[in-house]
Simulated assay, not measured.
Amino acid sequence: MATVPLQAAFRGDFATLLVLVDDEDTMEVVAQKVAYHVIGRRLPPQDASLRVQHNGLVLLPDQTVAQAVMPSMSFVEVFYDASGYDTAVDSGNYSGGSLGR
């Protein structure tokens, strides 16, 4: 178990955050750690799943930081996903909505 600092943004928010995660944290946990600093503070909660995008890929919720090969200070974007996707997808081929900010 190693601590990995990540640069993170939540889609729709103006701030980039420094979030400490564990290399064994899943993307679901990473998304929750990022959302903790944004949801209910600058953005309202939504009834949708949280997803993590890294290096152009929307990652699986059960994939760990180590499995995603995220070195220290990698950038991730967290967003609400109402599409119901449960597989990793290339953001260029993602039809669940815009991945741009």
Rank of each mutant, 00 (worst) to 15 (best):
Q53F: 08
L6Q: 07
M1K: 12
D62M: 03
S83N: 10
V78Q: 07
V58R: 02
D47G: 03
V78D: 05
P61H: 08
N55F: 01
E24I: 13
V52H: 07
E28T: 15
D47S: 14
V34E: 05
L59Y: 07
G12W: 01
A35T: 08
S95E: 11
P44I: 06
A82M: 06
H54N: 09
E28S: 13
L59C: 11
G97V: 03
H37S: 13
A2M: 11
S72P: 03
F75I: 05
S83G: 06
A31V: 08
Q46G: 00
A2Q: 15
D25H: 10
E77S: 07
E28D: 14
V65H: 09
T64Y: 07
V30C: 04
Q7C: 05
T3G: 09
V34N: 08
V19A: 11
G100W: 02
V78A: 04
Y80A: 10
L59P: 00
L6V: 12
L60A: 12
Y36N: 12
R41K: 14
V38P: 00
F14R: 15
V21K: 08
D22K: 11
L99E: 08
Q63R: 10
A8P: 00
D62K: 10
V69C: 09
Q67S: 12
G56F: 03
A2W: 05
V38W: 05
I39N: 04
V52C: 05
V21E: 11
V78N: 04
V58N: 06
P71L: 06
T16H: 08
H54D: 05
G40L: 01
F10G: 04
A88Q: 14
S95W: 03
V4W: 06
S95D: 06
A8R: 03
L59F: 03
S83C: 11
E77P: 00
V38L: 01
P44E: 08
D23M: 01
S72G: 12
D81I: 09
L43H: 01
A66L: 10
D81H: 05
M70R: 09
Q53K: 11
S74Y: 07
L6E: 07
A68D: 09
P71V: 10
L60G: 04
G56C: 01
V76M: 03
Q46F: 08
D86M: 10
V21I: 14
Y94H: 11
